[in-house]
Computed example of a mutant assay.
Amino acid sequence: MNDTKVPDTATTTPAGTVVRGDSTESIHWARKAARVFTDRLSPAPDPALAETLVLVVSELVTNALRHGGGRYTLRLSAGPRTVTAAVSDPDPALPRARTPDLDGVAGGFGWHMVRRLTEALTVTPGPGTGKTVCARLAR
């Protein structure tokens, strides 16, 4: 039997998590995957970070479904100092900030919120003809 001990100062992360979706029901699974992902990180992140990641994931996959071609691939990863959510969709059009609808009918809050909640936010071409939005949060 091999009893390997991990030092208290070590940081471990679960294997990268990938979720694919093509319906509004899949938003629930993306949120759940983000929660499970942060629950498995060691050391455990601050609960506020976990909730922020869930919110950012929810907004990014919702935007991919609504404005990015109707499907997405979510990749979650973590390093010693960051947690990253990368959402790919088939539409090459860059995300754009819209004027929020204060009557609550047409939305427009998501991209503004994601930009404020993340440490870094990048948009890169691909895969294929689409794009990937990568949101990094400080751990």
Score class of each variant (00 low, 15 high):
Gly108Leu: 02
Pro95Trp: 06
Pro95Cys: 04
Gly79Ile: 01
Leu117Val: 07
Ala85Cys: 02
Ser88Gln: 11
Leu94Asn: 09
Arg115Ser: 15
Pro90Ile: 01
Gly110Gln: 06
Val87Ala: 06
Gly107Ile: 00
Pro95Tyr: 09
His112Phe: 09
Asp103Ser: 00
Trp111Asn: 01
Arg96Gln: 05
Thr99Met: 01
Arg116Met: 07
Val87Glu: 13
Ala106Gln: 11
Arg116Gly: 06
Thr82Gln: 11
Arg81Tyr: 11
Leu94Glu: 14
Thr118His: 12
Leu117Thr: 05
Val83Pro: 08
Ala93Asp: 12
Val83Gly: 09
Pro80Ala: 14
Asp89Ser: 13
Gly79Asp: 15
Thr82Val: 11
Arg96Cys: 05
Gly107Pro: 13
Ala86Cys: 06
Phe109Ala: 10
Val105Phe: 14
Ala86Asp: 06
Pro100Tyr: 04
Thr82Glu: 14
Thr118Met: 06
Arg81Trp: 05
Pro92Leu: 03
Thr82His: 02
Ala85Arg: 09
Ala97Ser: 12
His112Tyr: 01
Thr82Tyr: 14
Pro90Met: 01
Gly110Met: 02
Gly79Gln: 04
Arg81Ser: 15
Thr82Asn: 02
Pro90Arg: 07
Glu119Arg: 10
Gly108Pro: 13
Thr84Asn: 08
Gly107Ala: 05
Asp89Thr: 06
Val105Lys: 13
Arg96Asp: 04
Gly79Glu: 14
Gly104Lys: 01
Arg116His: 15
Asp89Trp: 11
His112Gln: 08
Trp111Tyr: 12
Ala97Arg: 11
Trp111Cys: 02
Pro92Phe: 06
Thr99Arg: 12
Met113Gly: 01
Leu94Gln: 11
Gly108Ala: 13
Pro90Asn: 00
His112Met: 05
Arg96Thr: 08
Ala97Gln: 09
Trp111Glu: 00
Gly79Pro: 06
Gly110Cys: 05
Ala106Val: 03
Arg116Ala: 10
Thr99Ile: 07
Thr118Arg: 13
Ala85Asp: 08
Val105Leu: 15
Val114Gln: 13
Ala93Trp: 02
Leu102Ala: 09
Glu119Trp: 08
Ser88Thr: 12
Val87His: 10
Thr118Ser: 15
Met113Asn: 02
Val83Ala: 02
Asp101Asn: 08
Thr99Glu: 14
Leu102Tyr: 12
Pro80Ile: 04
Gly108Phe: 00
Asp91Thr: 05
Asp89Met: 12
Val105Gln: 10
Arg96His: 13
Met113His: 03
Gly107Leu: 05
Ala85Gly: 14
Thr118Glu: 12
Gly110Ala: 15
Asp101Trp: 09
Gly108Cys: 00
Gly104Asn: 03
Thr82Ala: 11
Arg116Phe: 10
Arg96Ala: 13
Val114Glu: 09
Arg115Gln: 15
